[in-house]
């Protein structure tokens, strides 16, 4: 093939749309967008072969800021919508994203079942430990003593979910935690997640400077896991439990059976089904 005919490698910005994000200045979600577009460019995935499904929240707006196919659905149901799409269209690369409220509160049931079902897709929770879009309420990952929400003025008093641990027990086959302060690291993690066959879960620590200004300190608290990725769930659970939730890296990766329904030849005729009714 001569050089002229070779397609120009797609640049990350080719995966961005013209739409200007609604996000506040300094919001971690910008870095998630950058990491995704970098990962897609690295993988040279044709835009039309990627479908990006999101729920509702500041973070869930992200689909509209990309130039791939997308669906901005209802609050909490992105994984369900994505699972239907993947079931019907196994040929597509399916990405899913949303907030910690979207994925772990209203969408919690879909989260555990998507982990268990292990369809080949990548799910990013953009975790800011708060409901940004509805202006600052506690989420399932918020610390029990966070008292800055008028809805829970004494704090929730409830211990938060540990998303990685939840994903592990629910059966996810790829579990990683990244940080928006390191968009290149996050992008590399996403490349691995997309390439992994099965359900890949990436928790992206993504600060909300508007409602959780103290999260601007995360850049001093986040560090990489010391250990390599494990395929042993017991080791993974120990690692997750021993950690304060601020260590990043691919924690767990293992091959589990991937759920993909259908796939039969489909040469059946209506007449043969109708004949079942004939007496």
């Amino acid at each position: 093939m001569d050089n002229a005919a070779r397609p120009i490698p797609i640049r990350p910005r080719d995966y961005k749309s013209e739409i200007k994000p609604v996000w506040c200045p300094g919001c971690g979600d910008f870095a998630v967008l950058n990491a995704i577009t970098k990962a897609l460019a690295f993988l040279e995935l044709p835009r039309e072969d990627v479908s990006f499904i999101t729920g509702i929240g500041c973070s869930s707006r992200i689909a509209a800021y990309t130039s791939v196919y997308g669906f901005h659905g209802v609050h909490g149901r992105a994984l369900a919508l994505a699972s239907g799409l993947k079931a019907a269209r196994p040929d597509l690369t399916v990405l899913v994203a949303g907030g910690d409220g979207d994925g772990l509160s209203i969408g919690g049931n879909h989260f555990i079942h998507a982990c268990r079902r292990n369809m080949d897709m990548t799910y990013i929770i953009m975790d800011n430990e708060v409901y940004g879009m509805t202006k600052g309420q506690a989420s399932p990952t918020t610390a029990p003593d966070w008292a800055d929400s008028k809805l829970t003025p004494q704090g929730t008093g409830i211990r938060p979910f540990q998303p990685a641990g939840l994903a592990l027990t629910a059966g996810a086959s790829f579990i990683a935690r990244g940080f928006t302060g390191d968009p290149n690291g996050l992008a590399r993690m996403l490349v691995e997640a997309i390439e992994h066959k099965g359900f890949s879960f990436v928790q992206a620590l993504s600060p909300c400077p508007t409602f959780r200004p103290e999260q601007m300190e995360w850049k001093h608290q986040v560090r990489g896991f010391e250990q390599e990725t494990t395929s042993d769930p017991i080791e993974a659970v120990q690692r997750i439990q021993a950690d304060d939730g601020m260590s990043t890296g691919v924690i767990f990766r293992r091959q589990y059976p991937v759920f993909q329904p259908g796939g039969k030849s489909g040469d059946c005729m209506l007449e043969s089904i109708e004949s079942e009714f004939l007496i």
């Binding site: 479908s51 499904i53 669906f71 659905g73 209802v74 909490g76 149901r77 369900a80 919508l81 994505a82 699972s83 239907g84 799409l85 993947k86 079931a87 019907a88 269209r89 597509l92 049931n109 879909h110 079942h113 329904p261 259908g262 796939g263 039969k264 030849s265 489909g266 040469d267 059946c268 089904i273």
Partner: peptide
């Protein structure tokens, strides 16, 4: 399945209808 399609048993009805919307968005 005989027609080359599929039926998925979802975790609840919220999932069912959203799966239907996802698959239909995919052209099926």
């Amino acid at each position: 399945e005989q027609f080359g399609g599929s039926l998925v048993q979802a975790e609840d009805e919220l999932a069912s209808i959203n799966m239907v919307i996802g698959a239909s968005y995919g052209g099926i």
